[in-house]
């Protein structure tokens, strides 16, 4: 599998990641080698095998539809880089 510059561009856009020049030159080779390593699984016969998402095949546990935790907005927003009047601030999206 050859990874092209445009593949890296697309992945970076999907993952919202930017790479510096050093990281970028390594990224193609690293990803090609990661994928080459991953390709080993293609040879395993998995016909009829159901994908395993949870090692004990457990399914999501349901709980009663009741409020169990109060949201302490002040405490949570104390962690935020930028807030104003109880709102998280981001650059303007709609002009």
């Amino acid at each position: 599998m050859t990874i092209l510059e445009k593949d890296i561009d697309k992945l970076c856009a999907l993952a919202r990641l930017g790479l510096d020049a050093d990281e970028r030159s390594a990224a193609r080779t690293d990803l090609e080698r990661m994928i080459a390593m991953a390709d080993a699984i293609a040879a395993v016969d998995t016909s009829g095998v159901v994908p395993l998402a949870h090692p004990l095949d457990a399914t999501a546990r349901l709980r009663a539809d009741e409020v169990t935790e109060a949201v302490d907005r002040d405490a949570f927003q104390a962690l935020a880089p930028l807030t104003h009047d109880g709102l998280y601030l981001v650059p303007r999206v709609i002009e």
Binding site: L11, A15, L19, A27, L31, I35
Partner: peptide, 19 residues
Amino acid sequence: RSQGFGREVKRRILTGTYT
């Protein structure tokens, strides 16, 4: 994200995004 994550983390995020 680019400033906050180191090289190995970025490598895994890109691999995961690919697969």
